[in-house]
Design a protein around this nucleic acid. Structure first.
Length: 725
DNA sequence: AAAAAAG
């Protein structure tokens, strides 16, 4: 067997004796259930797959079992990269003992912090699983691995199975049933499935499981992150959501997930400093400093002296006790102050750089934080520093938005040369005009292994043909999978179109909201999501609604990240049950209990419409989608009326007339037929003309749960809702 | 034309 691309890279980068040749396992050989379990703890040099062969989960729930998961061979490399396994003596975060281990042993349990009240028996039994019984699934491609019926049929490893149980996932969703075997077989995938169909788990499970069992070359450089898997998504909120999910799925597996995105800091990023500007001699505000999620400093202030002296004792005097948000023992305070010390010295270092070298240097992160004109350091950059630090401490799965990732790549803080898994969520958006150059840069122009070496999975609810063509550049002998739209035959989402002149929209909306208020007196949780076309429009409508006594908030891309997250949280919790949004909220976001989506302004693209209304009717619950239509939307008339017809919705006569009058403009031909978001473009005659019948198998149809074996009694489990997200 | 994504 010739040396693979990855082998040659790791061999070149790893002259120091990492067993590169035996370390790389090609995708088609990975994840074999028959893999010698002994290979786990003994040989894993990077991913720490101890959990695989570790069926007794004595470590679970017992925080201080040192090394139960990272008990693989210790060596200097592992110590310096990921903080090492032992904790005592060796390595640790930033050379201090206990950094990484502390984080691992006290890995926060993502399953306990659910802010939602538990789902009652009654409510959960109301979840309409029957709606999914007949979801059609279409696959095409070469040698498609057969779907599985239960999680038990899939060998994801005991640690992942445990997390599936903790998530209360009873059985795989249709997209999971098909996708997981495909990705476990190492195959590339283009999957067309509605958000809320369980696709995040569908690509996370195989990635996590693969990382746990795989053997990978060691990261060649200590100050650079070498993720094994990359998950890209088009908005910050969606990246966060994926990160949160992935944390659950990887809990206690030793697989480390990091999220990177732009904008203001949030808690999920491990250490967050907020300070507007930092000037020598002034105070550095530290807020919400977190290390391994176990220590939190609130509103602390640290002096940064002009003389470059940072007096840790002074800081201790100031901060011990009262100023911490959460009470921490002296040891925790001690550790936190070490963190402060480290941060402060980095600040000072950056000041030196500024003084000595006003030019911004590319690879010196802190240098770029300096604004020579204002003689200050900008706060956004301090965030980046923390994200970087998190990355430096080791990452297996990186979840990111494209802009920030490009930034990290240009700064050479992240290398993609060890990527084995690439997942694009909302792939059609990622490959449209706005994003495509960045995605191409990331996937094709940096150091990511090519298709065939890495495994690539693309997911979206919609997949226009042109986008499929673009996307096929990123894939190798892929399988196309289309899961029928939920609600297509079951009317889970009732779609209504109303003719409303531009000037009447507000009063019309008010009527809707009034009616809804009356109907849902006893159901305070009925949330309404109102989509508008512009950011300005979102601000204006929010203001108008508030003026008129409706509890509304708004989200759009011109708001700060803090505002965006605040709005989303406030909406989710029902504090402000009306959310006015631009398309930033159209895709992928999982907001339970959205009862009504109002297209105050219709989008110009029918696919955007599909994504927007997909925010309701989730998890088998019914939802309502109302659209305001007028002459300005005539280009959408045809595709909208076709879509509604396909979904067995009532199409008003006036809309049909609009449709008949207009040419096919605003939308694309929905080639997929009534029940799919798209079909494999390779099956189009234009593509296959003259070619051998490579995909000769054609489409394989299978009806969702036709082959049974399901235990219907288990459908009513609590929190099953989230299995679909 | 607008929105999103880096600052």
């Amino acid at each position: 067997m010739p040396m693979s691309w990855a082998d040659s890279v790791s061999a070149a980068e790893n002259p120091a004796g990492a067993p590169a040749k035996s370390a790389y396992v090609p995708p088609h050989l990975r994840n074999r259930p028959s893999t010698d379990p002994l290979a786990g703890p003994a040989q894993v040099s990077y991913a720490g797959a101890a959990a695989l062969g570790n069926n007794d989960h004595s470590g679970y729930g017992v925080p201080n079992v040192v090394g139960s998961h990272w008990s693989g061979q210790r060596n200097e490399y592992q110590s310096s990269y990921s903080g090492g396994g032992g904790g005592r003596g060796g390595g640790g975060w930033n050379g201090r003992s206990g950094g990484w281990d502390r984080g691992r042993d006290r890995e926060i349990n993502p399953f306990t912090d659910e802010d939602n009240e538990p789902v009652s028996e009654q409510e959960s039994s109301a979840i309409n699983f029957d709606a999914y019984e007949d979801i059609p699934v279409e696959t095409s491609g070469d040698n498609v691995p057969p779907p599985v019926n239960t999680f038990a049929d899939i060998d994801l490893g005991e640690a992942v199975n445990e997390n599936i149980r903790r998530c209360k996932y009873v059985k795989p969703t249709p997209v999971q049933r098909h996708t997981i075997p495909i990705s476990l077989a190492g195959r590339d995938l283009m999957a067309c499935a509605q958000t809320g169909s369980g696709k995040t788990a569908a690509f996370c499970f195989p990635i996590i499981s693969g990382i746990m069992r795989g053997q990978f070359p060691r990261p060649p450089r200590p100050r650079m992150a070498f993720p094994l898997a990359l998950i890209l998504s088009p908005t910050r909120e969606l990246s966060c959501q994926i990160h949160d999910e992935a944390k659950k799925f990887s809990y206690q597996t030793g697989v480390k997930v990091v999220v990177a995105y732009g904008g203001a800091p949030i808690n999920q990023q491990s250490a967050v400093i907020r300070s507007e500007t930092v000037v020598p001699g002034s105070k550095v505000g530290l807020d919400n400093l977190r290390e391994g999620n176990e220590a939190e400093l609130g509103q602390g202030l640290v002096e940064v002296g002009e003389s470059s002296n940072y007096n840790i004792n002074e800081a201790r005097e100031k901060h011990e006790g009262q100023k911490f948000k959460h009470k921490m023992g002296p040891q925790a305070v001690d550790e936190s102050l070490k963190i402060l010390e480290d941060l402060a010295s980095k600040f000072l270092e950056s000041f030196k750089q500024w003084e000595e070298k006003p030019e911004i240097s590319q690879d010196r992160v802190y240098a770029t934080t300096v604004n020579p004109r204002r003689k200050s350091i900008q706060s956004a950059e301090t965030v980046k520093a923390n994200e970087l630090r998190e990355l430096e401490r080791g990452v297996h799965i990186l979840v990111a938005t494209p802009g920030r990732l490009v930034d990290l790549l240009e700064r050479a803080r992240v290398s993609l040369q060890m990527i084995r898994y690439l997942a694009l969520d909302e792939a059609d958006r990622m490959l449209d005009m706005g994003f495509e150059p960045q995605i191409r840069k990331i996937v094709q122009q940096m150091d990511m292994p090519p298709p065939g070496v890495r495994q690539t999975m693309l997911f979206s609810a919609t997949f226009p043909k042109e986008i499929q063509r673009l996307a096929s550049d990123f894939l190798s002998n892929y399988i196309f999978l289309a899961v029928g739209r939920v609600g297509s035959s079951t009317d889970l989402i009732v779609q209504r179109v109303e003719y409303v002149q531009e000037t009447d929209k507000r009063s019309h909306l008010m009527d809707l909201l009034h009616a809804q208020r009356e109907n849902s007196v006893h159901d305070k949780q009925a949330l309404t999501l109102v989509f508008v076309e512009t950011k300005k429009g979102a601000d204006a409508l929010e203001h108008w609604l508030c003026m008129n006594g409706f509890p509304a908030t708004a989200i759009h891309g011109d708001r700060t990240q803090q505002e965006r997250e605040y709005a989303l949280r406030s909406f989710k919790t029902g504090n402000t049950p009306i959310l006015v949004a631009t398309d930033v909220a159209a895709r992928g976001l999982d907001i339970p209990h959205v009862a009504h989506v109002v297209n105050f302004d219709l989008p110009n693209d029918i696919d955007d419409y599909v994504h927007r209304i997909g925010r309701t009717g989730r998890a088998g619950k019914t939802g309502l989608a109302t659209a305001f239509f007028n002459e300005n939307n005539s280009s959408l008339a045809r595709s909208l009326s076709d879509l509604m017809q396909e979904a067995n919705q009532e199409v008003p006569a006036w809309l049909s007339r609009f449709a008949a009058r207009s040419t096919y403009g605003g939308g694309k031909n929905r080639r997929g037929g009534a029940r799919f978001g798209a079909r494999d473009f390779r099956r189009d005659s234009s593509y296959n003309r003259g070619a051998t019948d490579y995909y000769g198998g054609g489409a394989n149809m299978s009806s969702g749960y036709a082959s049974g074996g399901y235990n219907n009694t288990s459908y009513g489990a609590a929190c099953v809702t989230s299995a679909w997200d």
